[in-house]
Design a binder for these strands. Sequence first.
DNA 1: CATTTTATGCGTGTTTTTTACGCTAAAATA
DNA 2: TATTTTAGCGTAAAAAACACGCATAAAATG
Lengths: 224, 224
Amino acid sequence: MQQSIQLSVDAVVFGYEAGSISVLLIKRKYEPFKGEWAIPGGFVLENESLESAVERELKEETGITIDYLEQLYTFGNPNRDPRSRVVSVAYFGLVKPSAFKIFASTDAEEVQWFHIDELPKLSFDHEEILKKAIARLQAKITYEPIGFELLDTKFPFSDLEKLYTTLLGRAIDRRNFRKKILSLNILDQLDEKVSKGSGRPANLFKFNKKRYFKLKEEGIIFDI
Amino acid sequence: MQQSIQLSVDAVVFGYEAGSISVLLIKRKYEPFKGEWAIPGGFVLENESLESAVERELKEETGITIDYLEQLYTFGNPNRDPRSRVVSVAYFGLVKPSAFKIFASTDAEEVQWFHIDELPKLSFDHEEILKKAIARLQAKITYEPIGFELLDTKFPFSDLEKLYTTLLGRAIDRRNFRKKILSLNILDQLDEKVSKGSGRPANLFKFNKKRYFKLKEEGIIFDI
DNA sequence: CATTTTATGCGTGTTTTTTACGCTAAAATA
DNA sequence: TATTTTAGCGTAAAAAACACGCATAAAATG
């Protein structure tokens, strides 16, 4: 028995900057869908794990090294690729965009961050993949502290608050939100302040991942 | 570019009977791992969707038609199969065991339900897959009403309660649980009673899936 | 340099949800 | 018929979620 199914990986990478969520897309250099936008990804090599394949492709095509990566879903519709049967394992990644300089290479003619509400037409079934990834991001920030992967290591509380209002798509009470997050005891308050523009300078905070995992083991759950 | 990665599907199927959760396993008829227990599954055909492949393999190997099926995770470790590189998309299924007669055929020498705390040694990385499936089942019954897929269409409230205590692995207050579930308004109380053994006969209930989806659209969420 | 603007940060009362637990009802059993 | 067993209803206390007031600090404005 010998199939000729090809296996690929794709990565939906989210970033957050200046109050809006963006996703990293590439413009395809080759057929099919040459010149159109797509989620970065490519074929898995013979002796490579799926995660390694994702990391390699991202590095090759966009120059990005990922901070947070998890498997999203496997898309296996027989006709999703016009060339042949290609099954793709999609991943979901988060980065701090400020930390990386993106550049196109190999299969990518161009790389660009797109706001998730200003997306171009996408190749293959990538729209479906992206839709699923957005749903996952919105759901997951309410029960796992993954939002911190999108912020700088040190951040003022207002950044976190803004991230959540953006992702949840609704207003949240600033005072109650602060109380709730601080009561979880997973943030370290630093002795630094930032002043961006007018207004009172804000204290900087840092996510204490180690403490979070310890609390998680003890059964304390993150829940917004 | 031509890979020789093979693609398979596997299905972890859970059933519930007499107060305990079981999983459907097959004894392998051929090498590798001939004579050992494994999760049912097999290779995906060229023009078949992943879901169809799962359904076909389950039917072939065990005789079961699944009630509830969802994708679990894709396992792609390069050495998970001693023959060659095989990537497997694992699925998660639920059935009412009373509704089916299981029988072994094709690749299976034997089929059997195993209580999830009395499992045999498993082939490949199937232990890892099963572990993930159990975690998913336990997590998911708290935020989606999938428990009903394991019960008979008509069931007394105590069956539901017992299922939850079993799955959650802890006692729950009978009175508060009933109040909570009934207040969700997703159960129809029937005009039938069952009396099994001693004690006051219990009213039968039926899960109203249609109403649940309607409520879900309106934003009412199931949460135990 | 006083005043306005902008944003931080602490507190308090109210409503809603969760939790704990007492008690009655109906059938089998001894 | 008394006792045991399982079903089913109700009520009060505790905890969490929600709504909102207001003092404070620094920068911008005139």
